[in-house]
Design a protein around this nucleic acid. Structure first.
Length: 422
DNA sequence: TCTGGGGTCCTAGGACCC
DNA sequence: TCTGGGGTCCTAGGACCC
């Protein structure tokens, strides 16, 4: 193995974050819910063993949850985001090249070549992350990203539960591929899984041995790449410097249905304010703004969903300006008599936020507006979300969803610091 | 009663051009 | 009756990921 990749994947990340600060949760079934306390998006091993399904609406699993006294948490993204940052900081000490792939996963570029060396590194990563963050992780090493994913999967499922698997030669790689179902390979979703099933491709090993032209034809370029990656030919390069994002979206399902034009406008103003904060953090400005709203897709009433796309006269990251456009969009799509369940705003065609120039024609003092926005961001960061709000936004958010079981933001709010009583 | 949110990449089809 | 072909750009929607 001339060059290898390690995938470091946090085990049951959200649940594990909760357990760091409440050790009483260890060994017990625990789940974390999506926004609005809707679906189950993270499960402890004990919860999985009970048969609680990933992604299932909480109400469908209510019986199991109650019968086995499962601890249930609303998601606490502030906490998880901060814990993720700590994990990634720690990982950066192990390899010169680290690609942060998601909130709970990273790929590391390794120069080490052998089974023993790679395994030792994996164990060192696990040890240090355990001591420094309290989070359990699994490490998979392989010649490509897809093989590293396979390795991590095998490590997690192995009887010995070592937490590290290294596919350092053809024999080990084949043995691992034979143990993984084709539908569980990274990049195979329901659609490609159906194609594979019809073709009698059952394991990842079968897929690795599939004819390349057949794969290209039936699974697309993405599928063809998966086949090559399974054979050890890298097609997905390590990307250690994140490219600027292309879109920013802020949206939510409502806790109760929204009817009036004004209430929809207020909700959309709130979403675009949140999106603008993220835009400024990334030092970007948007050229296009999309507003969308939809009725309850599970409801019996009339189904409706609509979008309004607005091109901004000048790329903008200025909240009041974006709010004004978003309100216009909301007014366009609002239809009287309908009940809205969800709405949101997407900002796209993002460009680097230029040093603001005074607009000659748009009548907005951009440098000044930019300074105001920065000040608002700083105050809200220092004193808490929504300490300062823009006037166009209603203070109370009656349509806000449920967040009934959120744990304290232990690591980012002084007043929510963990208390230990002697 | 209750059913998530935020991304990326690819593809197909239409408009348009030479 | 015959009535190109290839390129680019854009957009909407599909597929997939965590």
């Amino acid at each position: 193995m001339a060059r290898a990749l390690a995938l470091v994947d946090c085990d049951n990340f959200y649940v594990s974050c909760e357990r760091v600060f409440d050790p009483g949760l260890r060994g017990r079934p625990v789940v974390v819910l999506s926004n609005n306390d809707g679906c189950i998006i993270s499960r402890s091993d004990e919860a999985k063993a009970l048969g609680i399904r990933m992604g299932a609406p909480l109400h469908e699993e209510r019986r199991l949850v109650e019968a086995h006294d499962v601890r249930v948490f609303s998601s606490n993204y502030v906490l998880y985001g901060d814990m993720s940052w700590r994990v990634m900081q720690t990982l950066s000490e192990f390899a010169p090249e680290v690609e942060v792939y998601s909130i709970d996963e990273a790929f590391l570029g390794l120069e080490c070549t052998g089974q023993r060396e790679a395994r030792a590194l994996g164990e060192a990563v696990r040890g240090r992350l355990g001591r420094w963050t309290g989070l359990p992780v699994t490490v998979g090493v392989g010649a490509t990203k897809t093989l590293a994913k396979i390795a991590a999967r095998v490590a997690r499922k192995s009887e010995k539960a070592e937490g590290v698997a290294v596919l350092s030669d053809a024999r080990l790689t084949e043995a691992a591929l034979a143990r993984v179902a084709a539908r569980d390979v990274w990049g195979i979703g329901p659609s490609r899984a159906r194609v594979l099933k019809e073709a009698g491709v059952e394991t990842a090993l079968d897929l690795a041995r599939a004819d390349e032209r057949w794969a290209r034809c039936r699974l697309g370029v993405v599928g063809a790449r998966i086949v090559l990656e399974l054979r050890g030919t890298p097609c997905l390069p390590l990307d250690s410097c994140p490219r600027p994002r292309h879109t920013v979206t802020a949206s939510r399902s409502f806790g109760r249905l929204v009817k009036s034009r004004e209430e929809l406008c207020e909700a959309v103003s709130y979403f675009v304010t949140k999106a603008a904060e993220r835009l400024r953090r990334a030092r970007l400005a948007a050229c296009v703004l999309v507003v969308f709203a939809a009725t309850d897709r599970f409801g019996a009433g009339e189904q409706y969903s609509a979008t309004a796309t607005l091109r901004l006269p000048v790329p903008s990251d200025i909240t009041p300006e974006l709010v004004a456009h978003a309100r216009r969009g909301a007014e366009q799509i609002h239809r009287e008599g309908l009940l809205y369940k969800k709405a949101g705003v997407t900002l796209l065609e993002l460009v680097p936020a230029a040093p603001a120039q005074a607009g000659l024609f748009d009548g907005l003092d951009r440098p000044r507006a930019g300074r105001v926005a920065e000040a608002v961001d700083r105050i809200n960061k220092r004193w808490g979300d929504d300490t300062v709000r823009y006037g166009a936004r209603a203070a109370d958010r009656p349509w806000r969803g449920k967040v009934e079981k959120r744990s304290p933001r232990y690591t980012t709010k002084w007043e929510e610091l963990l208390k230990i009583e002697a």
